[in-house]
Design a protein around this nucleic acid. Structure first.
Lengths: 244, 244
DNA sequence: CGTCATTTTGAGGTATTTCAACGAAGGTGG
DNA sequence: CCACCTTCGTTGAAATACCTCAAAATGACG
């Protein structure tokens, strides 16, 4: 499945900064902030760059932990499939996020690319060795995991809302803040499918579809295709996001 | 409000191990595992021991970060009050958990004691200094925050269930695993109120009450007062916990 | 042993889930 | 470049489960 898998490299330009690092004996998640230049350089020397197509599985739940990953471009989803057949996406990993959360040496989620993605893969062993050699790097990682924890709590609060439209609005608001927007206009890129959004928000696909239509019908947002949207009534949009 | 506030101490016996440490520029949560003996000793020298009654507010959302806390005995809840008036408990902090999650120098949740509690308070500044001096301690903390992240994801999955009885069963199951059980019999201590449980599970108080009654009526559990319960049909209990 | 807070119970309202089927979009191969 | 096929998304209607409101009952505390 890996399309490209180059050997370790040292080009700083190609090694992205890190936003989040859930890892180690347990965990996954999305984190934040940027590593210092020298940390990036250090990690670049032990990272393998990957370019992967949409839908590629990086690892599955319960598989032995072998590597952690850093997102360069694109979006990855981390999810768990429940006995009922339902799927719960625990986090979307965006550029600069680091992921590969594990527990007792096994990944706790399944990771799959949502779009064409550029990734940096680092063997877990080498990663931990780097951490032990560099306390500063470790502190950066700690900050990132902490941030991921905050994000996870936020996620729990969003899914606690009763109204589908409100949950969707909060999700779109989060996209606007966190997803790199290449656009010059004020449109927001929605890289994931409606199904993915439903699995993230804890709603049925139909509920997400209806909520989208509802926001559009009320003139609050406009969709330009399924992966691009624009907020046309910021006031009412914020009111919905906040009103809970 | 603090009932007792002794000066810093160095008694290792009285300084509990740490289970979770969400802290720093952002974050809160519950974590896991135990610090090494010498770490506990080190923290004990800078910690202040507190003995607090039920319902004591330790800090409020948006207040400036001044200290982090470690639970010795008892239970603390971390929550956010939403504009609608609803309250969402993001985590229960149990013995050995460390908490005081903040973001941009301000606590992200409000922390309040659920029962009579013994706490260790450490000034944030001294805490970070200890971390910088001791990379091992920092690594332990990283492990704990990572664990807290896993717990938060688990919480999100629990609240994603549709059925109240199932959510309650998962909650009770979690209590059985994590809450110190002084009892010699197989009964489970439920330190928090039904209202707290409702706020944690994202249900109404009435729904929790009805779910409790439902489990009891079916003979799956038995309640001995509101704060003690016993699982009388382990098979069906596990079936409910797992069936989702 | 009385008061206050918490919990239980009942009845009705509402939003989402389900089930089913149609429609649109994206990808592949001829 | 078009047709076909598969996946994804939209729509409609009924069922379910929780929420809300209101009131009684239970338990905690002093």
């Amino acid at each position: 499945l890996p399309v490209h898998a180059n050997t370790p490299r040292s080009s700083l330009d190609l090694m992205p900064s890190i936003r989040a690092i859930p890892f180690g004996q347990s965990n996954d998640g999305a984190a934040v902030q940027v590593l210092h230049r020298r940390h990036r350089l250090q990690l670049a020397t032990i990272a393998t760059r990957l370019s992967l197509g949409r839908g590629t599985i990086l690892y599955r739940e319960d598989m032995p932990l072998t590597s952690i990953f850093i997102v360069g471009q694109g979006v990855v989803k981390a999810f768990r499939d429940l006995p009922s057949g339902k799927r719960r996406i625990t986090a979307f990993l965006l550029p600069e996020d680091i992921f590969g959360l594990a527990e007792n040496g096994r990944y706790v989620n399944t990771a799959q690319t949502v779009s064409q993605v550029t990734l940096y893969r680092i063997s877990y062993q080498q990663f931990t060795e780097s951490l032990q050699r560099d306390p500063d790097l470790e502190f950066q990682l700690l900050s990132k995991v902490t941030h991921a924890l905050r994000e996870s709590q936020r996620h729990a609060i969003v899914t606690g809302r009763r109204d589908a439209a409100g949950r969707l609005a909060m999700f779109l608001s989060m996209l606007e803040t966190h997803v790199p927007q290449a656009q010059r206009d004020d449109s927001i890129v929605v890289p994931m499918s409606r199904t993915d959004i439903a699995n993230y928000l804890g709603l049925s696909l139909e509920a997400v579809s209806r909520a989208s239509r509802e926001l559009a019908r009320k003139g609050i947002v406009t969709f330009g295709g399924r992966h691009k949207m624009r907020i046309t009534d910021r006031t009412r949009f914020e009111r919905i996001v906040t009103a809970f």
